[in-house]
């Protein structure tokens, strides 16, 4: 199985993963940019480069995996729109995954145990976050994703860029690997999707639709409010 994974929930990243059976997938190529607002220009050429570097033809790809966020709206849509069109153009399935799961997997790989939080930058003095737990049985989502002020989160060890932004409010997990600056990466979403598609993981895949978690912020002007048929400037 050959999967192309994309994520534009914070920065932008992609990965091309292959497996021959149920074994852990091999990452043939992965790339990322932290350049803000460059997703739209970076991502499509990066996919072309990934395919050529890995020596695979696009027609060989079996599925596209896309990070559904949460993340800043405009950037998030760049990845989703590209993923939808690639899947449509290749005639293959498109799978969504919550982008925060990427960091949960990274934390588990780094040895975290018990309950913990994943947090990323939601701007406007808030974080996107989700609550996970990891034990002998495996790891799972407890709740989320949510958006809110760092002070409102449960008092648990946390990973992700939210920790670096709000060190007063969030307690950093002691993983010693710069976990307070982590941002999601498509390679982990690809691994998770592979696990789900081979029946090893449950509850990983979601609809490939954006997890905005916030309204558009548009305000109805006073003049448009119900019953108004009068002039007001």
């Amino acid at each position: 199985m050959l999967l192309l994974a994309l994520d534009t929930s914070a920065g932008a990243s992609l990965a091309l993963l292959r497996t021959d059976n149920d074994d852990a997938p091999v990452v043939l190529h992965s790339a990322e940019t932290q350049e803000p607002n460059a997703h739209a220009e970076w991502l499509a050429p990066a996919v072309t480069e990934a395919l050529s570097e890995a020596g695979v033809d696009g027609a060989e790809v079996d599925g596209v995996v896309v990070g559904a966020g949460p993340g800043p709206f405009t950037g998030l849509r760049v990845g989703l729109a590209l993923a939808h069109a690639l899947a449509e153009g290749w005639g293959i399935p498109l799978h969504g995954a919550c982008s925060l799961d990427s960091l949960a997997l990274r934390a588990v790989d780094a040895g975290i145990t018990g309950e913990f939080l994943v947090t990323t930058d939601a701007r406007r003095r808030e974080v996107y976050w989700a609550h996970y737990e990891s034990d002998q049985e495996g790891s799972r989502l407890v709740g989320g994703p949510f958006v809110g002020g760092a002070a409102e989160l449960p008092a648990l060890a946390a990973v992700g860029a939210g920790v670096g932004l709000y060190p007063e409010q969030l307690r950093s997990a002691e993983l010693g690997s710069g976990s307070a600056a982590w941002t999601p990466h498509a390679a982990e979403l690809g691994r998770l999707a592979h696990g789900a598609l081979t029946g090893q993981l449950q509850g990983v895949l979601c609809a490939p639709r954006p997890l905005y978690l916030r309204d558009s912020d548009a305000k109805v002007p006073a003049q448009m409010q119900a019953g108004s048929r009068k002039v007001g400037l």
Partner: peptide, 20 residues
């Protein structure tokens, strides 16, 4: 509108890339 343009542009790139 920049954000609106970006959706179509990204999708168009995806179609161009996938179809060659």
């Amino acid at each position: 509108l920049a954000g609106a343009l970006m959706v179509g542009l990204s999708a168009a790139k995806g179609l161009a890339l996938a179809t060659g």
